[in-house]
Design a protein around this nucleic acid. Structure first.
Lengths: 159, 159
DNA sequence: CAAACAGTTTAGCCTTGGCTAACAATATTG
DNA sequence: CAATATTGTTAGCCAAGGCTAAACTGTTTG
């Protein structure tokens, strides 16, 4: 008997209002995070490629490597994966482009990222900090929270 | 010439108020996230072990496996790492305990986690969602943002 | 137009964090 | 107290995402 120990209160005084969540729920939390981690990097690449295309007209591997502070070899390998996932198209030694699916993902990520970033600024976080936090947080914010953040930001701007 | 293309505006119309951050800052963002990812899992384990000890009086590998929805083998391997990092002490087939350093980490993580969770609830996010989001977000929230969240929650509770 | 430079790719390595299967130790119980 | 069930460990596999070094392609320029 490992969990759900009826004698727990004998060995450790229960801490009121701060109990462990039920196992299934707890497991769900961790599983969701692990899941997010799998798509996270992919989304970051796609989002960045989308941004480079929008702002520069082209997305080169070297740009990505610089902006992600990662070696070109790493980028090259990643591009192969993005290709396999049919998120980008690429001819060797040429700029990258996004497929339909890639564009969709880029837009979604971008929107999500912006909502979080604007929310943090509306909350009073300094820009540089907000950017760093947003980059890390964006993949872990549910749609529910996202729409609450959006409403909050709009509300803030009215005042 | 890869970045900082002076002709960018000729190929892509600049999107006002939404430019790419300077390369160094951009790189910093990604680097920070990558860095967080390295400690994230460790912190989650240590935090969970701390919680189990507090609420149950003991932390068994099987509990951790159940709550993280991960195989016992994975937990066993991870415990070896935590041991090497001198965050936990363990005798085979016995409950785990936290070292000084482990306790410190557990407390910090726990506090951080709680601030984010309470903030999300104060913001109006449903409990189940808040728990999932908090689990993912906690490792990506800077101290600056954290203290703003805390203030916000306190403010909210006064009203 | 050849040489030099910049950009890209490939090969091969490493660590992490998962997994299953097989085995070992401890606990529970008929 | 022996049999069974639970718990823990080990071995060996895999994919992801880093890296460096070396080879290759494309572009620029003397």
């Amino acid at each position: 008997m490992t969990d759900s120990n009826p004698n727990a209160s004998l060995t450790a005084p229960s801490i009121p209002g701060d109990a462990l969540p039920p196992v299934e729920q707890h497991a769900q939390q961790y599983a969701t995070v692990r899941n997010a981690h799998e798509t996270e990097l992919i989304e970051d690449y796609v989002e960045l490629i989308g941004d480079l295309l929008a702002h520069r007209g082209e997305a080169r591997a070297a740009d990505i490597a610089n902006r992600m502070a990662v070696s070109q070899a790493t980028v090259s390998k990643m591009i192969r994966r993005l290709n396999e996932l049919e998120l980008v198209t690429s001819k060797p030694y040429r700029s990258l482009f996004l497929t339909e699916a890639g564009q969709k993902m880029a837009e979604t990520s971008r929107a999500r990222h912006d909502i979080v970033l604007h929310f943090l600024r509306a909350l009073g976080v300094r820009d540089a900090t907000a950017r760093i936090d947003a980059e890390g947080m964006e993949h872990h914010v549910s749609d529910e929270t996202l729409s609450i953040m959006q409403r909050f930001t709009e509300q803030q701007q009215k005042n």
